[in-house]
Design a protein around this nucleic acid. Structure first.
Lengths: 115, 115
DNA sequence: CTGCTATATGTCTTGACAAGCATATACCTT
DNA sequence: AAGGTATATGCTTGTCAAGACATATAGCAG
């Protein structure tokens, strides 16, 4: 999860992944379509691969890269833990403020008791 | 979207966001819970804020940070564009290979025609 | 208005990492 | 085997960003 985020933070890598979303592509096509240099693309693909975001399958001299579905499944699961946030449009700030203030008071008390 | 990914790529920032998922927190609490130094937390919050991931509301001298639901909504939408990938477990590699090879052949033809 | 708490900003240093270029490897064709 | 195509790796350099520390600002209590 952490590695995935790091990998996708790089703009060109995100472009690559977004390109691969439409299907497997050999390195050469990625180079063409994104106007990048071949070595950098290979390196980016390496990072994406290490992060588990893409996978490779060789066909002759070409290497077809594609998105690993499972990776994005995990990704979606993480996002889902935030779903409540926008589904219930609850604004609990006032409640939380009270809670926190209560805790602060407790710490105050301890301080006084301790000294 | 791009800024969001960059922001979340930093591990401590992701920790902060994950902490805020449970509700608004003042800076001090984030510092305590994550064992970070206050200035860095403020800076991280700045980045998260600029990326639109969190928002602030002042309460006395404290500043309560919370996750911006809309940001995660957008995030989820992006992930959703990948949903097909894991829902239909389609493996279209063979098809794509043929397509690509067809294109290669066309380029070959052009090359011969041009020279 | 003075000191205190909570948070933000500035500066510096250091480490990570992406680009660029050269070169190595793999596989295919003849 | 030789040359060509497709891709990967090594090395160097420049840039950016996170951490550490000092300091500034804002709001509150006496």
């Amino acid at each position: 999860m952490d590695a995935m985020l790091t990998a996708l933070a790089e703009p060109n890598r995100k472009r690559i992944v977004d390109l691969l979303r439409d299907g497997p592509r050999p390195v050469g096509q990625i180079v063409e379509r994104l106007n990048l240099q071949q070595p950098q693309v290979s390196k980016h693909l390496r990072v994406l691969s290490d992060a588990g975001l893409v996978e490779v399958r060789p066909v002759a001299q070409q290497r077809f890269y594609s998105v690993r579905p499972q990776a994005f499944h995990e990704f979606a699961s993480w996002i889902d833990t935030y779903r409540l946030l926008w589904e219930e449009q609850m604004d609990r700030l006032d409640v939380v403020v009270q809670e926190v203030q209560k805790q602060e008071v407790q710490k105050e008390d301890k301080r006084h008791a301790g000294n």
